[in-house]
Design a protein around this nucleic acid. Structure first.
Lengths: 219, 219
DNA sequence: TAGATTGTTAATCGATTAACAATC
DNA sequence: TAGATTGTTAATCGATTAACAATC
């Protein structure tokens, strides 16, 4: 017999946009924007088709809008947060040197996006006394099952490339189930049962080179 | 009459994988791997279907493989580089504070991926005397048409969120045609004729929260 | 009731995979 | 010739857009 709980997983394209809507609505609420918005407004702000937006939102189960009116900014954000499995402040662990992780925080404003930095682990022995946001930076080897039992299931890896795989393995052993890898590293083994998302800065850059080189030829 | 040069653009999914193959082959060559590889090897290393690999490579025009044999590592990398419009060392400009940009270089090894950091611009007035890789860090306002005329068409933006749009606008004025934005910023206006790629760390994280929350429910 | 906007079903478009002939 | 692996055409799958009925 099939598990009843596991309906089809949300398509990746849809899931990414739902996350994006959640970011946008959070932004609007922080800017004290109130009341209702239409799928048209949402779509045009993000450069999407309005049907795409409505279609995406239909994945939320209970229909979130009012015909003739639109969506409640506050209510829709709430529903999205719930669907995404986001607690009010979502705890994330960070693995990387103190310098790199604190630099990350100077362009990625974690709290504004609803996250909380819950733990820090560094591959650099010189970071044994380092502190970020008033919290001690620990050794990578200190990654342990306490992490997941404390409710930290998600981690960001931004170490030197030589430490990426080891970090992932330790996080997986500690019960972390979702890992975002920012370090460009061509081949990575994802441990069984762990979601590993790789950001590939070099590929994004090479793709841009291609697109731009075509422009040049036309000119 | 239609422009003859502008055939259909390469589909984004294909283009990203072609860039990925280029990264992998570069890696293999740096590790002195020689000779031939098959689409099967390429695919299994990257967790892809081997037909996908062959299909992608068919976009290169002249067929790059030998039936019964496979692909020359060196030859294929060459063809990919040419298709992608990558010079031997591809110049990229970086916009962001000296601290953040130098931190970026400690987890993203630009040269290993075939790039050269060609210019630095910082939004931070304290960076007026800063130097990265022996090159002076300039003010954002110093971004000028010289950039593009020097052959720098691609830039990475990793400033504080408040400076993202301004940086993009200045780069566009300077003739930069491809911009990769690493700073999470929900809404960005892409100037006419400029390719802007946004990396969305918060969305990737929120998507992971969703996937992981489903695992919890099943357990 | 009229106007607006949602939610859903159908149609199109793009991307992936399978099947197979071509050829080294 | 036999074995291997490519390149291409066809079939499937997923994602986007269009059309329209439902309803606030």
């Amino acid at each position: 017999m099939q598990k009843l709980t596991s309906a089809k997983p949300t398509p990746t394209a849809v899931l990414h946009r739902l996350s994006l809507y959640h970011c946008l609505l959070t932004d609007w609420l922080l800017a004290s924007k109130k009341g209702a918005i239409t799928s048209k407004e949402l779509a045009s702000t993000l450069g999407l088709n309005e049907v795409t937006v409505r279609n995406d939102l239909s994945f939320l189960g209970e229909t979130p809008g009012k015909r003739g009116v639109g969506y409640s900014i506050d209510g829709l954000r709430q529903m999205l947060g719930e669907f995404l499995g986001l607690p009010p402040f979502a705890p994330v662990a960070f693995v990387g040197s103190a310098k790199v992780v604190s630099s990350l925080f100077s362009f990625f404003l974690v709290e504004k996006f609803g996250f909380i930095s819950a733990a820090f682990f560094s591959e650099d022995p010189n970071d044994r006394t380092a502190v970020i946001n008033g919290r001690e930076v620990q050794s990578i080897e200190a990654i342990s099952p306490e992490l997941a039992s404390m409710g930290v299931n998600i981690a960001v890896v931004i170490t030197h490339p030589t430490w990426v795989q080891h970090s992932i393995n330790l996080l997986a052993q500690a019960g972390v189930k979702g890992i975002l890898v920012l370090t460009p590293s061509v081949v990575i083994e994802a441990p069984e049962g762990v979601h590993v998302t790789q950001i590939r800065i070099p590929c994004d850059l090479k793709a841009l080179f291609h697109r731009v080189s075509l422009l040049d030829q036309q000119a």
